[in-house]
Design a binder for these strands. Structure first.
Lengths: 325, 325
DNA sequence: GTGAAATGTGTAAACGTTTACACACGGATT
DNA sequence: AATCCGTGTGTAAACGTTTACACATTTCAC
């Protein structure tokens, strides 16, 4: 079919072993042989077959990227960074979108194993957290969410601290009835809720409640409507992701609530509109690109040296205060 | 290392050929053999090695997805649909982000070939359009952008018609000085520009000019600023993508231009904020999920039957009129 | 009862690499 | 002159599949 190392060997007048050695750049090769092989490769336009290499090596130059929601800008930013790092190291990226479905996650993890990927980047669904058995899995790096018991490389942001900082801007602003809208089921959401709640120490009466739903726009809109209905006195809202925030903000705009006009709306991530709505929205920006890069770097190192000590990288979110009069 | 078909054969007390046949479900197999093999597979937890399969078949169950910008919500939506279809058919998705860089595109296409992917989904950079040689490449389906001369399966939206429709809402609104902000270098941008311009037939004096730049937020912001400076009389703007529109809209908001207040702002895609800014923004929504699905479906069919006639699917954008008093 | 067809199974080759091992040569060290 | 080592190259095995081919048994038609 396509060109193989045999064709190159024939053309260069040597054995396939020599060709392979030249290509790999190891072992003893005479200048003459090297030159002939290189010439033959160029003339024929030979490109090695990665599948054969993978079979032989029992490991491919592919990494798996398991995302919970690729439509979430936070994750697409991460994907971009991951792919860039991988490409730079000669790896390709096998991408999967689980939509937070633990079953899909498991299926995909199995697929990855069948593909003999060199490593996996995963933002784990909470439900699967305990099933991650590092002894059977290829090198694995967790990002965005960590798994409590597991001894695995992880890159996260300090969600608790970030939520605390964010919520405090609201408390400083003298709001009296504050509600929180958070994602459901995830480690991340739990940490943010914790930070959110701890901000109210000594001011518990200003905390209206924590509302949770899967992190989609429609859910944010729904929860916001629910809050407005149940708690007419609400005067401020914290949203734990761009998607939830976008939905919630839409509801607020449509209901002409005073929350928005009075700046009682803040959120995680930095949705594109946060800077130009009136008044602009204060946010915690997550270092998505940095997270993707760090996770991919970590994975490369782990692949290179599976015995290296496990590390946990904690990135800080950046508070962006907007619209202070 | 890991389990192979040999282990299963040993356990089931038959040859590896029989195991393979049971797994593939073809050829003659006795009920007894089938049962024994299935049992052995289950007991051992055997999973076939996709790499070995790929090598033997000279083709993997992987498809390549080449994106020009994964951060663009339009493309992440497409990615999601593609991955879902692929998964359903037992394929995995190798993802690459080119950032519109033709060099990266070429490099990646080569990588894909080395990985022996079964097929490729591509939104081609204009610069590479001519180099797509279907005779050497695996099955290929183009999406979002088509290539003029090439005889390739394609899924696009009717950009010219969409731009025409969109621009007409502006003309009907009696705006007199209309500028257009479009992406650079792409087939898509050209088609949209064509539609945009043709809307002005008989009203050429109302067309202020066409501005082009790579489709990023900052570029949209920059172009908008440039337009405001050069053409103080501008009273309406058409933006050809969500990213450009977001940047442009930000600039407008910050400059307190009257364009926004008077609804003279419309765009392609349906950015999340379009529905809740005041006044809301009329848009053409691109059927991103449908496009991804159609393209992936088409690729599956093409892989199955490489001889089937080439088809071009044209999807229609949906005009969403908002904020009509 | 014979031959042909249908059914069932195993052996071995092939896919394109990498690499252990063997071997050959030349020069340096005994 | 024998030995050893460094250099260079080739042969062949291995990775885990699929499948062509061979062979054996059963079924069936005449």
């Amino acid at each position: 079919m396509s060109l193989s190392i045999k064709d190159v060997a024939l053309r260069a007048g040597c054995s396939i072993a020599t060709v392979s050695r030249v290509l790999a750049g190891k072992g003893y090769i005479s200048d003459e042989a090297r030159q002939k092989v290189e010439e033959a490769v160029k003339e024929l336009g030979y490109r090695p077959n990665r599948v054969a290499r993978s079979l032989r090596a029992q490991k491919s130059r592919v990494i798996g990227l398991v995302l919970s929601d690729i439509r979430n800008p936070f994750f697409s930013e991460i994907s971009r960074a991951v792919e860039a790092v991988a490409f730079r190291h000669g790896y390709t990226v096998l991408m999967c979108n689980t939509d937070e479905d633990p079953k899909r996650e498991v299926q995909f993890l199995k697929l990855m194993e069948e593909e003999k990927v060199a490593g996996i980047l995963l933002s784990p669904t909470r439900a699967n957290a305990k099933t991650l058995d590092p002894s059977v899995l290829p090198p694995l790096v967790l990002f965005d969410r960590k798994v409590a018991g597991a001894n695995l490389d992880t890159v996260v942001i300090d969600n608790e601290e970030a939520a605390l900082k964010l919520t405090r801007t609201l408390l400083a602003g003298n709001y009296q009835k504050i509600a929180g809208i958070f994602g459901a089921k995830s480690f991340t959401a739990s940490a943010r809720i914790k930070g959110f709640q701890s901000a109210f120490e000594g001011a518990e009466n200003r905390l209206l409640g924590v509302y949770q739903a899967p992190a989609f726009e429609e859910e944010g809109a729904r929860l916001m409507a629910e809050i407005l209905k149940k708690e007419p006195g609400v005067d401020a809202v914290v949203c734990s992701s761009a998607l939830l925030a976008t939905g919630a903000y839409r509801t607020l705009r449509q209901s002409a609530s005073r929350i928005v006009a009075e700046r009682g709306f803040i959120c995680f991530d930095d949705p594109s509109w946060a800077s130009f709505v009136d008044p602009p929205v204060t946010v915690i920006r997550q270092p998505a690109a940095a997270m993707g890069e760090a996770a991919a770097d970590l994975l490369m190192k782990r692949i290179e040296d599976p015995a290296r000590p496990v590390s946990e990288i904690v990135l800080q979110g950046e508070l962006i205060v907007r619209g202070v009069r």
